[in-house]
Design a protein around this nucleic acid. Structure first.
Lengths: 149, 149
DNA sequence: TTCTTTTGTAACTAAACTTGTTACAATTAT
DNA sequence: ATAATTGTAACAAGTTTAGTTACAAAAGAA
């Protein structure tokens, strides 16, 4: 199964961004994401560790953003919930007695860093506000489609 | 577990590149990669589908490259063994009745394509020969280290 | 104070994926 | 014929992901 944590995290952040002034409940977000509230709270826990959200327990508790959507880049969200490299190295260490086996990991490691950097750079080029803007644009396009049908 | 298919595939291809004129046996590669020969043959099967290698069964059978290492880019290897996007979309479809839930997938899909493209572009910028060259460079550096110790 | 709501987190399950292994038919040189 | 090798199916063990239940802690409401 492809990891959907980032997709859900962006969804969560977008929900919070749309209601910047209220505290949003995990159950409300869960309904939109179509999952269990605990799944959302686990994500919010990661996002909190990254200082992207604050939550309050108890009656009238909930979560809100710590910053304006324009000040949150997607890289922060990605790093908050994603811990893997784009590709992994060998599960078991290759044969040290083989000329290639003994050096390939170093070469792949360098490549791994480069690829990861390219991804990070791309994620860093967008903010949460860009996602909101795009959401609005998509919504409008959908509206036009309905009208022109 | 982070997927190590690409790492193993590059290792396999590098082994084949180092012995361009012979047919290499899966058991020989498996020893260097430190895994089972069947794991290697499964990888070779994917690489064959991508037209990167040819194998022969039977006595004195084995596998060799279809092209010179300089004519194989890492993107081809990556695409031969990797089928996932960098990040996945929602496991379950979000709530259609929610303004954000109904549009977020489209936005994330566009982002997904962009990120995947960035990765592909990076992989496309290297050839198997570059990996071989880097291997040689790393080996030399190791040698120097030993001498200077 | 007591009740209610909500978060935070642990524990468990089910499904999917990855790697490793055994087994064996098909193929090909000796 | 015999031996060696690939190709592939079938299965096992370990890991990961998402989902679920349960409940303590927190905090406002009554």
């Amino acid at each position: 199964m492809a990891n959907s944590q980032f997709a859900m995290a962006v969804h969560v952040m977008a929900m919070l961004a749309k209601n910047c002034d209220e505290r949003i409940k995990s159950s409300y977000i869960a309904k939109s994401v179509n999952t269990n509230a605990v799944v959302i709270r686990r994500l919010l826990s990661d996002l909190h560790e990254a200082n992207l959200v604050v939550s309050q327990t108890g009656y009238s508790g909930g979560t809100c953003l710590t910053r304006q959507p324009a000040d949150v880049c997607l890289l922060e969200i990605y790093e908050a919930v994603s811990h893997d490299n784009i590709f992994g190295l060998h599960a078991k260490e290759p044969d040290r007695d083989c000329e290639i086996g003994s050096t390939i990991t170093g070469v792949l490691g360098k490549l791994q860093v480069e690829i990861d950097e390219a991804v990070k750079q791309k994620f860093a080029s967008y903010t949460l506000q860009d996602v909101i803007d795009e959401l609005v644009k998509c919504k409008e396009e959908k509206g036009e489609k309905i009208l022109s049908e």
